[in-house]
Nucleic acid binder design. Structure first.
Lengths: 189, 189
DNA sequence: TCCTCATAGTCAAGAAAGTGACTAGTCAGT
DNA sequence: ACTGACTAGTCACTTTCTTGACTATGAGGA
């Protein structure tokens, strides 16, 4: 009961095809969730069967036809119900954290490789989010946009995504620094 | 192939019973993963069958006997293999993010309730992590501990947990501020 | 004495998420 | 003429996670 609400939330502001939702959930853009095409299509089918979204066929020339989905009244009610119940807090579940947890028993060079990769990934993702935020703000300053802009929801979640990746990046940097310093100090002994 | 490595990492520094691992993975202490008892016991059974951990029966008086597990050579090799492969980066997967994503279509008061709850939770969890960090440092200053302390791995992951919850707390605070300001500004119009 | 909490663990079943492979058409380049 | 990338979507299968039980024993408090 989680992806379903994420899909509903994604469809709130615009009518999208399954493929577009898929895109939104894939690599770059997913600021608050992630899912593969198969999962998205399956969820959309279920949501349509339950009447929470409505699809309409759009005939296209030069490319396959598509089905655009929008959220129904029941769909919105479902989201309201979801928001009125306590959200269960998430925890960090990163492979890299497990690897660093075992740092004292593993080769530092190998870990530094992993941290370097993650650092670059976080940096790239943060930049991507930043770019998205800029687009959403349009010409407005951030304070102005947050006060009077239409649709601040996606903006606020995107900002969380950016800050999350920045924090990941900084953590990777700090951990690498510690590992290097300890190696140097170990050499002293 | 993820919980198994988390369990292995947890057993690296000390011999623990399934129950103790369970505790470590439950609510408070899990700085890098979370799992229910059933999963932990199932994983331990699998790990033992594959020879990655070794268990020994400890007869106790006044309470049920227990089995203490330690990581074998193969277990450590498995972890090394795990660390040498690229870690897949995690993304945020919080119900609350989905709820805020839909903020423009939902009742602000309801959302503020959720945010208040999450704020308190994050604050409490961050304090818990902070306390754990203090204990791990012992008498040493942080810089000194990071350079010369034994077992910095758990310390570094715990620090990530603390910073994650602090970021969650700050984000909740900011989002609430935005929602309140917009409501006030909406009243103006 | 009863109640609850902590220790120590297990079973069964289901929902949710992830993996791999596959169809089928269009367009831009080489 | 061929290759690769993009649009649009589907089938089958597996792993992982979660829910909800249930068994024991002992200690401490009302």
């Amino acid at each position: 009961m989680a992806l379903r609400h994420a899909v509903l939330a994604a469809l709130l502001d615009e009518e999208l095809s399954g493929y577009q939702v898929t895109k939104a959930f894939a690599a770059g853009v997913a600021n608050f969730w992630h899912a593969l095409p198969q999962q998205v299509y399956a969820e959309l089918a279920r949501l349509e069967k339950e009447g929470l979204v409505a699809g309409r066929e759009v005939v296209q020339e030069g490319r396959p036809n598509k089905r655009l989905f929008r959220v129904t009244g029941e769909g919105l009610a479902e989201l309201e119900g979801f928001a009125s119940a306590a959200a269960k807090p998430a925890f960090l579940r990163e492979d890299l954290l497990v690897q660093v947890q075992a740092a004292d028993h593993l080769d530092a060079d190998v870990l530094i490789e992993r941290l370097t990769e993650r650092y670059a990934f976080a940096e790239a993702k943060a930049a991507l989010f930043e770019e998205q935020l800029r687009r959403m703000r349009g010409g407005l300053g951030e304070a102005e946009f947050l006060l009077r802009g239409a649709r601040v929801g996606p903006y606020l979640t995107c900002r969380r995504g950016r800050d999350f990746e920045r924090a990941n990046r900084d953590w990777c940097r700090d951990v690498m620094e510690v590992l290097r310093a300890r190696r140097a100090a170990g050499g002293e002994v």
